[in-house]
Amino acid sequence: MNREQISRIAHTRHPIKSPLDDASVQRLLEHGVAHGQARLLDLGCGTAEWLLRALSAHPEVRAEGVDVSTEALEQASEAARARGVQDRLVLHQQEAAAFTAPHTFDLILNVGSSHAFGGLLPTLDAAAAHLAPGGRVLIGDAFWEREPSPEAVEMLGEYGDLATTLDQITAAGWTPVHAHVSTRQELDAYEWALWGTLADWALDHPEDPDSAQALETAAERRSEWLHTYRDSFGFLSLVLRRTAG
């Protein structure tokens, strides 16, 4: 069982692959989609759940998603057909950092996948290249809510605290027009959903050759969360506009 298969099963009950509940996602999209005929681009869309929700809520919005995963894009395509929005969604299988388009976009999304560009600020630089005048970026990334342990930094990477993260963003020429810091309930619900769902699948499929690995992975990931980063990890989602001048 590879990482992608594990993620697919684990996210069955939490299709938004970040610690955000449905109400938070809806509010972020409301602030991100500035008008009903907006053109959206998700750089690192995965199964395109953000785009699917935006398309379902706004019947004239059009969207494009970029991802390297064949399986994720197949899921996205199938879900788009099921929701009746397939005619307004274009999916591109390629590296997000190499994507080009003949037009610009009113909203660029990148939530939880800034690693595709090498970090938060490079992601914003990439988004700016696709952004229409007056457009917005909806970005979500980690920060350290409290001083992390060396083990947490080794596991998850180098991040700043909330204030430092915002200072870096504004210094790079962006202005937040909406923000959401994931609550403890959202953070915990996300982790419980992932590893509980994966464990549930393993226990429901004892004859599957991947069952033992799935159950072991669920236990390992749950332990890492509880013992290594639960008390320090935070997640910030922002709607940004370019600062004038």
Rank of each mutant, 00 (worst) to 15 (best):
G140T: 06
A193D: 04
H178I: 06
A128I: 04
L194W: 07
V181S: 14
L156K: 08
L187S: 02
L162H: 13
L203C: 09
D200L: 15
R184G: 15
T164A: 14
F143D: 03
Y159D: 04
E186L: 03
T164M: 11
G135Y: 00
F143G: 02
G157K: 08
Q168M: 13
G196H: 03
D141C: 10
A193N: 12
A163P: 06
Q168W: 08
T175F: 06
P176D: 10
G160N: 15
V137P: 04
W195C: 05
T197Q: 15
D167Q: 15
G140E: 05
G157C: 12
Q185G: 07
A142N: 13
P148A: 11
A152Q: 04
I139R: 05
P176I: 04
E191I: 10
A132H: 00
L166N: 10
A128S: 12
L198C: 03
T165N: 15
L194Y: 11
L198T: 00
A163C: 09
A128Y: 05
D161M: 14
G160A: 14
D188R: 10
V177S: 10
L203A: 14
W144L: 04
E186S: 11
R184V: 12
P176T: 05
P148N: 12
W201V: 01
P150R: 11
G135T: 01
A172L: 04
L203D: 12
T165L: 09
